[in-house]
């Protein structure tokens, strides 16, 4: 056996026996690359995800909702930060990672390329988008790479109120005036299918899945997670009297799961390719924040250097 094969076998044995991989451990280059790609995509999603929701902070309909939304969007910034830090343990810099986002080279979750048109969208995003994200995140708390798993544990703890606040918004709207209920149903109609797409392509068409499962970066397949999400969410929609916009949705006694209709993968691919309703706005907003902040970051470093010099003198 060559050295690399030996190391790979040792590495795989560690993963198989549920030992976490830590930053200084030897790891296959593809494992490292795969992780960097996944963690930074995840970080970018948190940060870009601030935009569609942040959008409604200034228009939140009560002071309580405004405070909650501020805290929630702020949490997303924190989650982005934890994840960028986790990616840095793999030998990337935050700057490089962010540059890849700003140049359009790196991807982020396509869901954030949809617009938040009404207040009910803030409810739908919390309930469905965070709900779908949590399914993934809970799984990732047990991912094989230590720093990623630790970041996810912290994120899951903080996320727990996000889905609930969204569902509460929807519940209140659904119980409100006919106009409010209509607003809630319309938001569910628009966000349902994109939320299902968040779990990624079907297992048969998922390019990175097999390796990710073998390395225990991922621990459940896209389709499994999607099905669990549907089973849970249908029940929640019933409780608040909203209708899932899928005529094919039907409980299946034999499988003990819901059967459901077909995802429009052409739409998914088109949004991923950059043709969603808000791709350009999202990237433009991130680029503007980054560029406008350049002099601020520079000033802080210049002052720190002066201060250190004076201290040394």
């Amino acid at each position: 056996m060559s050295d690399t094969t030996k190391r790979e076998a040792l590495f795989q044995a560690k993963v198989d026996s549920e030992q976490k991989i830590e930053p200084k451990d030897w790891m296959p280059e593809k494992y490292r690359k795969n992780l960097i790609r996944q963690i930074s995509q995840h970080a970018h999603s948190e940060v870009v995800g601030m935009l569609p929701e942040g959008n409604w902070i200034s228009r939140a309909p009560s002071l309580k909702r405004k405070a909650i939304l501020l805290a929630k969007v702020q949490d997303e910034a924190g989650h982005g930060l934890y994840l960028y830090s986790a990616a840095e343990t793999l030998g990337t810099s935050r700057e490089q990672t962010i540059d890849d986002l700003l140049s359009g080279k790196a991807k982020y979750s396509s869901i954030f390329n949809y617009p938040t048109l009404t207040w009910a969208d803030i409810g739908a995003v919390g309930w469905l988008v965070d709900g779908a994200a949590i399914m993934n995140q809970v799984m990732l708390c047990r991912t094989s790479y230590g720093p990623y798993a630790r970041a996810m544990v912290r994120i899951c703890k903080e996320e727990s109120f996000h889905q609930r606040q969204g569902y509460e918004i929807m519940a209140v709207l659904a119980k409100g005036s006919p106009e409010q209920k209509e607003m809630a149903q319309d938001a569910l109609n628009r966000w349902w299918w994109p939320s299902l797409m968040m779990f990624g392509p079907t297992d048969a068409n998922s390019p990175h899945s097999a390796e990710s499962m073998k390395w225990k970066i991922k621990r459940q397949s896209n389709d499994e997670l999607r099905q669990t999400f549907i089973d849970r969410t249908v029940q929640q929609a019933e409780v608040i009297g909203l209708t899932i916009p899928d005529p094919d949705l039907k409980w299946n006694e034999a499988t003990q799961h819901y059967d459901w209709g077909a995802i429009d993968w052409a739409e998914f691919n088109s949004v991923v390719a950059g043709n969603g309703p808000c791709n350009k706005e999202r990237l433009a907003a991130r680029n503007k924040a980054h560029n406008d902040g350049a002099w601020v970051r520079e000033a802080a470093m210049a002052y720190a250097a002066k201060k250190a010099e004076r201290k040394a003198a």
Partner: peptide
């Protein structure tokens, strides 16, 4: 990690 002196260091 980064060459740009304007990037804040990691803590």
């Amino acid at each position: 990690m980064s060459d740009n002196p304007n990037n804040w260091p990691l803590w």
